[in-house]
């Protein structure tokens, strides 16, 4: 299947943001020992990967708005809704478990990766209900 222009731009942006994210993780990891005191400089360095995460979210948002094919856009939005439901449900349920039991703490860092996994679940839901997974 050939990619439409919105998909090509999306993949290009995701590649740039991914490289930035990995570079920011390495930079923060090399400059800040684990458990460093929260100074303005250490916080600024530690937030760099977070900015890249905003980059991922921006790229996904741009993709939704640039996708001119309304059916494909519907599939992508459905995937995002499933992902949001999954991420919110898992994070909230685990949080309740943490309150009442001694399960290990789930770092909030994992919420976005869980959301991304949810996109895959959303594609499966689309496949089951529409016969089409989506396009990205």
């Amino acid at each position: 299947m050939t990619m439409n222009p919105a998909q090509r731009r999306y993949l290009g942006r995701m590649m740039v943001v991914s490289v930035t994210y990995v570079a920011a993780i390495f930079l923060a990891g090399s400059l800040l020992p684990k458990g460093s005191p929260a100074t303005p400089l250490s916080v600024a360095i530690a937030l760099l990967p977070g900015l890249a995460v905003f980059g991922f979210i921006w790229a996904i948002g741009r993709y939704f708005s640039e996708l001119t094919d309304e059916y494909l856009r519907l599939l992508e939005i459905r995937k995002a809704l499933v992902a949001t439901a999954l991420a919110l449900g898992v994070a909230s349920s685990w949080g309740i478990l943490e309150i009442y039991t001694d399960v290990p703490r789930l770092p909030v860092f994992w919420v976005f990766p869980i959301w991304c996994l949810g996109l895959g679940v959303g594609a499966a839901v689309n496949k089951l209900t529409f016969g089409d997974g989506g396009c990205a």
Binding site: N4, T68, D69, E70, Y71, L72, L74, F130, G131, D132, C135
Partner: peptide
């Protein structure tokens, strides 16, 4: 129509109702 083949298939098979502009 300047849409994907997937869209045409979804409309034809009644899985998706197009917007009024489409």
């Amino acid at each position: 129509l300047e849409v994907s083949r997937q869209s045409v298939n979804a409309i034809e098979t009644g899985k998706y109702d197009p917007s009024l502009p489409l």
